[in-house]
């Protein structure tokens, strides 16, 4: 159920340059579990759009199916939204963008929605360099269908049902870079100070921008035996350093300095090492980026920040040499060649 939030217009609410308050960027009340990482990302999106002075109605929000894909209802109420079918948001985004290249297309997906059922469309929307922001709310599981492993779950981790995941986890960022994505970033739902600037950068990028956000599922990722579980981390406490337990349902936040490796404890008690990229890191050097990603992976670290950036990419409408005027604004005049041309065409078939 989505409730519309009661709107209180507080006289002191600050306005952005366009005169909008943050309320103008909010959505309906979330129906996700209390403490779900996805809600933090929604809040970051609101903040990013507000700070970027984006007109809310110039954004189109698109998603697939999953807890994560429900979130477009929880931000930007003044934007049109499209909650499509499972794994197919990229094709909706592509068609919408071809119809009107002037809007900002903000896609939201889950790790199931993207890395399993939607893997094909994810790959192809990247290689077409569609001008869009693609946010993955990545919790390593299928939240909405009650916690099954997703394709981004770590190998060897234990799902709630007890089964150990024997398969390699898919690294969406590495894959995206491989496929030619022109903006690839990774962050953590609890780290607003990093996520908001990343989202702002992604929205400012022309071309495909992937923002893979680690977003804990408080309800289905809290089991003994998972490589990200509290127990696992406690047993490896010495080698991994200090472990903080964050109780279920409490929002996780963290802040850390550039260059540090930071351990973040998720709701399920598991640990993620966020290795903040050094400030001298060059996100435009593909080989360096891929090396850094591989190295982090081998150390069970997760690199965060803007990992890769290529500002020379040509987005899809330009690749197709499409007119600058949004196609949905063309009328009979531009679209229909008329009867005189048609009689010539008929003549050619006689």
């Amino acid at each position: 159920m989505s409730y519309t939030k009661p709107v209180f217009h507080h006289p002191h609410l600050t306005k952005n340059e366009l005169g909008y308050t943050k309320k103008d960027y909010e959505g309906s009340l979330s129906t996700l579990c209390a403490g779900c990482g996805h809600d933090s990302i929604s809040a970051a999106i609101v903040e990013a759009c507000f700070e970027l002075n984006i007109e809310p109605h110039r954004v189109a929000k698109l998603s697939g199916i999953g807890c994560s894909s429900k979130t477009p209802a929880y931000f930007l109420n003044n934007s049109h939204g499209f909650n499509s079918v499972h794994g197919r948001m990229p094709s909706i985004a592509t068609g919408a963008n071809l119809a009107n290249r002037d809007l900002i297309y903000l896609g939201v997906s889950g790790d199931g929605d993207t890395a399993s059922i939607g893997m094909g469309q994810f790959c192809h929307v990247i290689r077409r360099n569609l001008n869009m922001i693609y946010v993955v709310m990545n919790n390593g599981c299928y939240g909405l269908t009650k916690g099954q492993d997703s394709a981004t779950a770590d190998k060897g981790s234990k799902a709630k049902a007890g089964n150990v995941n024997p398969y390699e986890g898919i690294d969406l960022c590495g894959l995206a870079i491989e496929l030619g994505a022109t903006f690839v970033a990774q962050s953590f739902s609890g780290d607003k100070s990093q996520l908001i600037p990343i989202l702002k950068a992604a929205m400012s990028h022309k071309g495909f921008a992937l923002v893979n956000v680690i977003s804990p599922c408080v309800t289905f990722n809290n089991n003994v035996g998972s490589t990200k579980s509290y127990d696992y981390v406690r047993e490896h406490n010495e080698s991994l350093g200090r472990v903080d337990f964050v109780p279920l349902g409490e929002e996780i936040t963290t802040q850390y300095e550039a260059g540090e490796v930071k351990e973040v404890k998720l709701h399920n008690g598991s640990e993620v090492l966020f290795h903040k990229l050094r400030q001298d890191f060059d996100p435009e050097n593909k080989i360096e980026v891929i090396n850094a990603l591989q190295k982090a992976r081998s150390q069970n670290e997760i690199l965060t920040g803007i990992l890769y950036l290529d500002n020379s990419g040509v987005e899809l409408n330009d690749l197709l040499n499409t007119t600058e005027v949004p196609l949905n604004q063309l009328s009979e005049k531009e679209l229909c060649p008329g009867s005189a041309v048609l009689s010539e065409i008929n003549q050619g078939y006689r």
Partner: peptide
């Protein structure tokens, strides 16, 4: 699937 998805996205827009 993608073909009809794109058509739908465009039609919606």
């Amino acid at each position: 699937l993608a073909a009809i998805g794109m058509v739908m996205g465009a039609g919606w827009n």
